[in-house]
Every structure is written in structure tokens, then in C-alpha cells.
Nucleic acid binder design. Structure first.
Length: 281
DNA sequence: TTCCAGGGATATA
DNA sequence: TATATCCATGGA
């Protein structure tokens, strides 16, 4: 094992598969803040402080077990990268974002966050989520928990508009009401295909947002969300044009199989950070 | 001023 | 089923 616990800390000793900037800046999570020498991360009703030291990372919280699962610490990323590196198109992306991991986040938080994410940019997404948490989430003393389903249910369209969600505000209200009525209660037992279909029944959730939710919250690591960056990268990677995003997603899931979600994260991080350089070539 | 952001809903044919 | 257009908002 590459980590151990020590009181309120998790010590990650092998940083060849764990780099905070790679994990947090790969677009899968929004409630983190860069502070001098560390990051502060809030998820659900928990907070942790993340510090990079020489050859180790320290995760400080009051719930080690939660964050061991959250950071996917029992998974073998050396093996995942070896499997993905068999595809030549993956090699640059893996060396660039070698410390990426796929987080195991709270379902409701990911659903709300990614409804907000549609046709939006990461900075604004973060701001809108913080506005919602500050108004609805429990005051934890200097920070706010992500609101519960009950707390979210009390908010109306006008509230989400004021939070900055724009035209997505009515989607949020409808989706929250449907979740409250049990729309997603059995999807843990469903096949990924059925789970995706259930998610896409909710307002504001299409194929891409559903795939992000499946990958980042439901542990369906075989899905490959295609967003605007993967859309741009697809022709460069695969050499085909004229595909819809759903077609690209299905094809890439076929290529990478049970590692498709990981492949997608390495590629997203690489192409989003370096796309301008690619255009200059 | 125009374009873009981890897209989706809706109208139209 | 497939394509076109609209949707708030703010930064580049």
C-alpha cells in the first residue's frame, strides 16, 4: 500500500500516482481553494487540507476513511497507466497528468455541479456552486457544507438565478424535485446503460453531463464523457471527422473499455492545458 | 464586439 | 432521426 494513516492524517508516500494539482485541476471537482503551501477542499459536509511535501502528500481531515475512498487510494494507478500506455495516443497525456486520480464524490453534489457546468466555464461554475452553498448549506464555522437534498428542495428558480445559474435555474429546480421523488433511487443496481438513461431523464442532464456524473460519483469508470475539449482533440487523436459527441463517446468507450474514464481524464487535463500549443504546431 | 466555456432543450423538417 | 437555434453570464 502506498499510504498510511497517522492520527487525523493520511500520508500518501508514493507521489508518482498522486499529484494534487493534477487531481484538482482536471475538471472533476469544483470546491477547492489554493492557499499558500496547500489546498483546502470541501466535499459534502467535510473539509480537508492537502499539503504537498518532498516526496509525499498529507491529507488532513477528521475522517480518514471517507478520504481514503474519496481519493481512490486502494486503486492501482500504476497498472491503469501501464494498460493505457499500450495506446500510443495516450502516452503524452499520461506523462503530463501522471498524478491524476478519479475521485469518488457525493452523488448529489456532482449532479448539481454538472448541471451547472453545461456551456459554462470552470471559474463560473465554482462561483455559482459557492453561492448556492453559502446560502443553503449548513454553516460549519468559516465554511459551508454542500446543501442536502432537503435544503436544495426549498430553493426556487429565482434563488438559482440570483446564484448565477442563468438559464439552468429551472433545470436545477426540476431535477431536484424529481430526485426528491425517487427518480434515481435504484440506479446503483442498474447497468451503466440504464443508469445513464435514468440520469438523462432529469432536466439539464444530457449524455455528457450524465457521463460525468456516472464517472465522478457512481464509480462507472468505463464511461468516456466528451466535452468541448475532447471534441476538439478527437480528430487529432482518432483521425476521423463529422462524428457527434455521443458517437465519439461510444467509440472511445469501445477502445479503452474498463479504463475509458481514466483515459478521458488524462486526455481532458492534457488537451485543456496545452490546446493552444497544439494549435501553434 | 465577438467568441467561448466540462451542453441541453426545443422547434422544425 | 437529424440539424439549427436559443439559452445567462463574464472573461478573453
Amino acid at each position: 500500500m502506498d499510504f498510511y494513516t497517522q492520527g487525523s492524517r493520511i500520508i500518501v508516500e508514493d507521489t508518482s500516482n498522486f499529484v494534487l494539482s493534477h487531481i484538482l485541476e482536471s475538471g472533476q471537482v469544483f470546491r477547492y481553494t489554493s492557499l499558500p503551501n496547500c489546498y483546502q477542499l470541501i466535499t459534502k459536509n467535510l473539509i480537508c487540507i492537502l499539503k504537498s511535501e518532498a516526496k509525499r502528500v498529507i491529507i488532513e481531515s477528521n475522517n480518514n476513511n471517507y478520504f481514503i475512498k474519496y481519493f481512490d487510494l486502494h486503486n492501482n494507478y500504476t497498472h491503469i497507466k501501464e494498460e493505457l500506455a499500450k495506446f500510443s495516443l495516450m502516452r503524452d497525456a499520461i506523462s503530463y497528468g501522471y498524478g491524476i486520480r478519479i475521485l469518488g464524490q457525493w452523488e448529489l453534489e456532482v449532479i448539481i455541479s454538472f448541471i451547472i457546468s453545461s456551456n459554462n466555464n470552470i471559474g463560473r461554475i465554482q462561483k455559482i456552486i459557492e453561492n448556492i452553498c453559502a446560502s443553503l448549506g449548513k454553516d460549519m464555522g468559516g465554511w459551508h457544507a454542500f446543501p442536502t437534498l432537503e435544503q436544495l428542495s426549498e430553493a426556487d428558480t429565482d434563488f438559482f438565478v440570483k446564484a448565477g445559474a442563468g438559464y439552468r435555474a429551472p433545470f436545477l429546480v426540476k431535477a431536484i424535485a424529481d430526485i426528491n421523488n425517487g427518480a434515481l433511487k435504484d440506479i446503483d443496481k442498474d447497468t451503466t446503460e440504464l443508469a445513464r438513461a435514468s440520469l438523462m431523464q432529469l432536466a439539464g442532464i444530457g449524455r455528457k453531463v450524465a457521463d460525468c456524473i456516472l464517472l465522478f460519483a457512481y464509480g462507472r469508470h468505463e464511461v468516456f464523457p466528451v466535452d468541448t475539449w475532447l471534441d476538439k482533440a478527437y480528430c487529432h487523436l482518432i483521425g476521423k471527422e463529422g462524428r457527434t459527441r455521443a458517437e465519439m463517446s461510444a467509440e472511445l468507450e469501445g477502445i479503452f473499455g474498463k479504463y475509458a474514464g481514466y483515459a478521458q481524464q488524462y486526455l481532458f487535463y492534457f488537451y485543456r492545458k496545452t490546446y493552444k500549443n497544439m494549435e501553434d504546431e
